[in-house]
Write a protein that binds this DNA or RNA. Structure first.
Lengths: 184, 184
DNA sequence: AATGGACGTTCCTATTTCGACATGTCAATC
DNA sequence: GATTGACATGTCGAAATAGGAACGTCCATT
């Protein structure tokens, strides 16, 4: 597919669907649930996107409809070329780096505030990051981990979130002190 | 404006423009250059967006056209209500957290690869993050910092990038070791 | 038997973003 | 005087995103 068509879509929704279907076959509805739960904080998607993309993917031969169940349920399965495309994306396509940061955009314009306000803002950010970190710790404590690959990669993804929120908290705290000495 | 209209746009392009114009008046073209250079890695925007948004902002009274120069150049200046809106956004509107991460999406599907491949992928990510870090160090060394607020907030933003790439590198390295013991 | 809720798909509109195209002015240089 | 390149704005269409309306099926409970 990436050979046939001229423009390769950077969009990752299709690859998210391929990745989910690589583990087990599912209906659009099932996949939608996955986007609402496990993928909600990684790659959100809406109905229109999921059902639309499933249609395109099966038209391109990356998916097959392998069963039709009750209520018009269509069960999608990944095809060999679907697996090839997934693997290609995973290993060979370089991830586009994150380009937008609302937080940094704000930092750019903190110079329009006076230092005390800027310090307060940054302190609030540090507190927010600490809250995120605590939330993730709670998730970590409550999930039942086992020895499956899914658990392992879940732990690895969670660890990323933990480290990220930690560094945000430390940075915001440091930045607040740079801007103005802490209020006594 | 945020009082009058029912729905508050989350979009930050307008606030980026207000922030730039809070420091000095400029034309659309000038602002476009700012988006191509200093804001390129924080909040990218295209012509169509910039010119379109400038029109809306001045229609809403957040900006004024204070001068018309050669070649149809229009110089925009921020108004009092523009400053109010900027301040509101900076201080009171909570930043929407980052929701999408192509990197984490990939991690979710690394279980479709065998461990050795997954380890190699993560090692490549660690190397890429190290490269980013080195690039930022170079920027840090070459910029001429002074005592202006602009310099201070620039340093703070840069520090965020440095810490972020550092934590990405360390995490990817750690993750690779979790997935499979390092090859000798 | 009726009803409510989960299941399941399709279609619709609106907004944001991107990239490209179109148009034109001004200054310098060849 | 013609060409080039920086300056400067405007418009268009395609794609991605977001959210919801509409429709129907199956099942369990009342």
């Amino acid at each position: 597919m990436s050979i046939l068509s001229g423009k390769v879509p950077v969009m990752s929704l299709r690859h998210a669907l391929l990745g989910l279907l690589a583990n087990r076959s599912a209906s659009g509805y099932d996949l939608l649930k996955a986007f609402e739960t496990s993928l909600a904080n990684v790659w959100p998607a809406t109905q229109s996107q999921v059902y639309g993309e499933l249609g395109k993917l099966s038209a391109e031969g990356l998916l097959d409809v392998t069963a039709e169940g009750p209520r018009g349920r269509k069960e999608y399965s990944i095809t060999t070329s679907g697996r090839t495309e997934l693997r290609h994306w995973l290993v060979e396509v370089e991830p586009e780096r994150v380009r937008r940061s609302g937080m940094l955009l704000r930092v750019f314009f903190l110079d329009t505030l006076d230092p005390a306000e800027a310090r307060d803002y940054l302190a609030a950010q540090a507190a927010a990051a600490a809250g995120t970190h605590a939330g993730l710790r709670e998730v970590e404590a409550n999930v039942e981990w086992d020895d499956s690959p899914l658990s392992m990669y879940g732990r690895i993804a969670l660890e990323y979130g933990l480290r990220l929120s930690q560094v945000q908290r430390e940075w915001a705290k440091w930045a607040a002190e740079q801007v103005a000495p802490p209020a006594q």
